[in-house]
Amino acid sequence: MTTHLALLRGINVSGHNMIKMEALKTTLEAIGFQNVQTYIQSGNVFVDIEEENALKVGFLIRQEIFKVFGHEVPVVVIGKDDLAICFRNNPFLKEKDIDTKKLYVAFVSTTLKSESINDLKISQFKPDEASIDGSRIYIKYAVGAGKTRFDQKYIEKKLNVTATIRNWNTVTQLLTLFEER
């Protein structure tokens, strides 16, 4: 049995793509997922299944959400090791007196090349900063996520990927939950 963390993008945001977490849990259990556990309303779902391939797991979840709820919801699936690496490798945590409330991670659907940072043209968003590490983009917003154009839509358009962003507090909590499983 493999535990996966499915990060659903764009559910329960501003009244769009509304899905109750209990209904999502029941839906996923009905198609064979076990130990389904959700964390907050923004679409963080732990599932256990024999399938090891994260892309297949994401496809199953995306397909069932569309079938049951009628929402086209992008899904990025990651494992415990990937989340632990994410936690250890955030370059902004090395800064003295860093305000973790300004830190975010964009989880993307594919491994990025280090030169992909050039494609993002992050300099036009200064003082926001970003750093790429595998299938993650670490982001440090100067003011806040709600006051920038350097968002998930921009990342997806520039890099031709599926992306979903979580704040650092959520990343920390998800790792704790993964370790408790």
Rank of each mutant, 00 (worst) to 15 (best):
Q173C: 10
H4R: 14
I19M: 03
P127D: 07
L5F: 09
Y39A: 07
V161I: 09
Q124F: 07
T164N: 15
L159P: 03
S114K: 05
F69K: 10
N167Q: 06
P74T: 03
I49H: 13
D151E: 13
I137V: 07
V161D: 02
I19V: 13
A145R: 07
Q152T: 10
L159V: 04
L93R: 01
N160H: 13
L112M: 02
H71R: 13
V68L: 07
K94H: 02
F178I: 03
A145Q: 10
K157P: 01
L112R: 02
T162L: 14
I65L: 10
N90A: 00
T170Q: 14
Y141H: 05
G144T: 12
Q63A: 14
T148N: 11
L159G: 05
L7V: 00
S116H: 05
Y154R: 12
N167E: 06
H4W: 11
V73W: 05
I98H: 04
D81V: 01
G146R: 10
S42K: 13
T2S: 14
V143G: 02
Q34W: 04
M1Q: 11
N17F: 03
S131W: 09
I11T: 05
Q124R: 14
M1F: 06
V75A: 05
E129S: 11
F92Y: 08
N118E: 14
I40D: 06
N35C: 07
S109H: 01
E52Y: 11
T164W: 14
E72Q: 13
M18W: 03
G58F: 08
K67F: 02
W168L: 12
I19T: 06
A145Y: 09
C86T: 00
L7M: 08
A6H: 01
G58E: 01
E115Y: 10
G15P: 03
S42M: 06
F125Q: 07
I139R: 09
A163T: 03
M1W: 05
G70Y: 08
D99V: 05
T176I: 06
V171R: 14
L159R: 08
E50N: 13
K94R: 06
M1T: 10
I139C: 13
I132L: 07
T172D: 12
S109G: 04
N90R: 01
I132G: 05
Q34E: 15
T26P: 01
D97M: 02
H4V: 05
F125A: 04
Q63V: 06
V108C: 02
I132V: 11
N169A: 15
P74G: 07
R9N: 06
V36S: 05
S114M: 02
N89F: 00
N44L: 10
N53H: 13
K147E: 09
R149S: 07
E50K: 14
K25P: 01
V13A: 11
A23W: 08
A30W: 04
C86W: 00
A30K: 11
K113S: 04
G15M: 13
N53L: 12
P127C: 06
M21F: 13
L8M: 07
V68C: 06
T111Q: 07
Y104V: 00
D119M: 09
